[in-house]
Design a protein around this nucleic acid. Structure first.
Lengths: 147, 147
DNA sequence: CAGGAATTGGATGTCAAGGTCCATTTCGGA
DNA sequence: TCCGAAATGGACCTTGACATCCAATTCCTG
């Protein structure tokens, strides 16, 4: 559910939003989010292809958000890398083309629809503005067991 | 999202509920649900281990639901094979043990919680009783492209 | 314009999910 | 009691997700 890749992407994007509009290097993001740097670079490439972030090479380069945090939703980030699996037609591949799903798949898709809605309504800015004590990425000086 | 295995399990269980309390063989279920028989047998074994279904070997054997359809929920089936990934502590492995999640992971877990609730409220009987024309498994004589 | 900082792209490795196959065990019926 | 129907368990194969590493490219700065 929500692949590891998406989890990593969300952490990275939250970090970028937290520092917007300044650019951050892959190393800085990797350290802050505890994502393996080599893999993070791939994830970031994916986000760049999807126009979620911009990246600039060379000295002084790094990654920045393509939008301001108040215009970027969780859904956009999720869908950029692994679209929510909405069920649009009978997975059994039978008749019903565009026709409404059988009760089982209707229920499942309803659940995904609710998730999609929740994600579409949440912007990065909202996450950062949350009136809570704990910082968005649980950042802190002490790093414990990664498991 | 919701692995293929879970999708197969749900189809199988719906089929069993539709024929309850009679036993169905793996072959019968495989044909009705369009799930590859060899793999279906593994899925069914998993459901049996989780006490969702009973299975009897030998001639006249087959698989039956362990509960009546009105007492079996989608959530039970899902959790038997791949529990919904509720986020109980900071995935970054930092401090906050049992403490409340950072805003990002709180939002994600909220979405899973909603899904969980929806699944817990839906019984197999409800799915079968749905006032709709299309049968639960989109069953029908004509089999089209599986893709 | 040279050197280092930084992303990019490609090749490669690892592991679990999905899927198949077969020998074995279990059980009903003739 | 014997045969065939049926699930079981284990071995095996394939593919994609996750992850790593390195050479090439880009571009700022002195």
């Amino acid at each position: 559910m929500l692949s590891q890749t998406v989890e990593y992407a969300l952490r990275a994007v939250v970090h970028l939003a937290d520092h917007a509009p300044e650019a951050r290097t892959t190393d800085q993001i990797a350290e802050a989010t505890h994502v393996p740097k080599p893999y993070l670079s791939k994830v970031l490439q994916g986000l760049a292809r999807a126009k979620i972030v911009h990246s600039r090479r060379g000295a002084g380069g790094g990654v920045t958000l393509a939008k301001t945090p108040d215009k970027l939703t969780i859904l956009e980030v999720v869908n950029a890398l692994e679209p929510l699996p909405r069920i649009r037609e009978c997975p059994l591949g039978l008749a019903a083309h565009g026709v409404r799903l059988c009760p089982l798949h209707k229920r499942l898709d309803d659940a995904f629809a609710i998730m999609e809605k929740a994600f579409r309504q949440t912007t990065l800015a909202e996450i950062l503005a949350e009136p809570t004590s704990s910082r968005p990425l649980c950042e802190g000086p002490k790093r414990i067991r990664l498991k």
